[in-house]
C-alpha cells in the first residue's frame, strides 16, 4: 500500500532513534550539568541568605536583650533617683522638724530667761523700792526735834509746813 506523501515508517523509526540519542546526549552533556550548577548556585545563595537572616535575627535578639538591659537600667536609675529624692526629702523634713524643735526650745528657753530676768528685775526693783522706802522712812523717823506723828501728818497734808520751815 502506497502511503501518501511518501511516509516511510522505517525512516520515522530512524528519526526516533536520532531523537532518542539527542535527548540522552543533550541531557547528560548539557542540560543536567548546567541545571545542577544553577541549582548549586541557588542553594549557595539561599544558604547565604539564610545565614544573613540568622545573623540578622541574632543581632536583633542581642539588640533586644541590650534594650531590655537598658530599659532595666533606666528603671533602676529611676527607682534609685526616687529613693534618693525620698531620702533627701525625708532628711530635709527631719532637719526641718529638728530645727523647728530647736527653735521652739530656744524660744521657750529665751522666754523662760526673759521671765526669770523680769522676775529678777521686779524683785530687784521691789527690794530697791523697799530700801528706798526704808531709808526715806528712817530719814523721816530720825528727825530728833519733831514729833514723828506730826511729821507724818505734815507729810500727808502736803509737806507745806515742812517746806516753810
Amino acid at each position: 500500500m502506497q502511503i501518501p506523501l511518501n511516509i516511510d515508517w522505517q525512516q520515522i523509526l530512524l528519526h526516533w532513534l536520532n531523537l532518542a540519542i539527542l535527548t540522552g546526549g543533550l541531557y547528560f552533556l548539557l542540560f543536567k550539568p548546567v541545571k545542577q550548577f544553577m541549582e548549586k548556585r541557588e542553594a549557595h545563595y539561599r544558604e547565604m541568605e539564610e545565614q544573613a537572616a540568622g545573623k540578622l535575627q541574632e543581632a536583633e535578639r542581642i539588640q533586644e536583650s541590650y534594650q531590655q538591659k537598658l530599659d532595666q537600667a533606666g528603671e533602676e536609675i529611676h527607682a534609685a533617683r526616687q529613693k534618693a529624692q525620698l531620702a533627701v526629702q525625708q532628711s530635709a523634713e527631719e532637719q526641718l522638724a529638728q530645727a523647728q524643735k530647736q527653735a521652739k526650745q530656744i524660744v521657750a528657753q529665751a522666754r523662760a530667761q526673759a521671765e526669770h530676768a523680769k522676775e529678777q528685775a521686779m524683785k530687784e526693783s521691789q527690794r530697791e523700792l523697799k530700801k528706798l522706802a526704808t531709808e526715806a522712812a528712817e530719814k523721816i523717823a530720825f528727825r530728833p526735834d519733831e514729833d514723828p506723828f506730826d511729821q507724818f501728818l505734815n507729810l500727808a497734808e502736803g509737806g507745806g509746813a515742812h517746806e516753810v520751815r
Binding site: N6, D8, Q11, L14, H15, N18, I21, L22, G25, L26, L29, L30, P33, V34, F37
Partner: peptide
C-alpha cells in the same frame, strides 16, 4: 536509500552533541 532530511537530522544531532561535548569539557 533515505530522504535527505534524515541525513540532515543525523548531522544536526552530531553537531549538537559535539557542541554539547565541547561545552561539557571546556566550558561547564
Amino acid at each position: 536509500a533515505v530522504n535527505p532530511g534524515l541525513v540532515s537530522a543525523f548531522l544536526v544531532t552530531a553537531v549538537l552533541l559535539l557542541a554539547a561535548l565541547l561545552l561539557r569539557i571546556f566550558v561547564i
